[in-house]
């Protein structure tokens, strides 16, 4: 197995976040601890570990905080499904409201015909014919 290059290490490190800093990815983190983690990634790559295996190892060791986004499992699904579901629901409500508008106008027309006053006018107009 060839020695992993700095680019190889940084490619994996850029997908992981420093567990002891706020929003700093491992490839640019200046802390000594982050250097230790980058060294560990280099060792793991040299041993032939895949990017997925390294990411899984970091999650098992330090928790989900090392990932850029919460993994899609358990309650985290809410974060992924809620926004599109709410948008879809909003669209359904909007469409059903819009569909109701022309029907309302037609209904008003029907009511006018049933109006006794208009019926009287209509009858008188027919008599004129």
């Amino acid at each position: 197995m060839p020695e992993p290059s700095d680019d190889d290490v940084n490619r994996v490190a850029s997908q992981l976040y420093c567990p002891i800093c706020d929003n700093v990815s491992l490839d640019v983190c200046p802390l000594e601890a982050c250097q230790t983690w980058r060294d560990l990634i280099r060792e793991q790559l040299a041993l032939g570990w895949s990017e997925r295996e390294i990411t899984d190892y970091f999650v098992a060791q330090y928790g989900d905080r090392v990932l850029g986004a919460p993994p899609a499992r358990g309650l985290n699904w809410v974060l992924y499904l809620a926004p599109p579901a709410l948008i879809l629901l909003g669209l359904i409500i909007l469409l059903s409201k819009l569909r109701r508008q022309p029907q309302k106008q037609r209904t008003t027309g029907d009511l006018d015909i049933d109006d006794p006053y208009l019926e009287l006018v209509d009858r008188d107009l027919r008599k004129l014919d």
Partner: peptide, 25 residues
């Protein structure tokens, strides 16, 4: 008319579903 009442019921049902969904989230 009957159709207007039905439309109102449909909209109310969706509103209830939306509120329930929001509360669950």
């Amino acid at each position: 008319s009957e159709s207007t009442v039905k439309d109102h019921k449909t909209v109310n049902l969706w509103a209830i579903v939306a509120i329930a969904g929001l509360v669950i989230v």
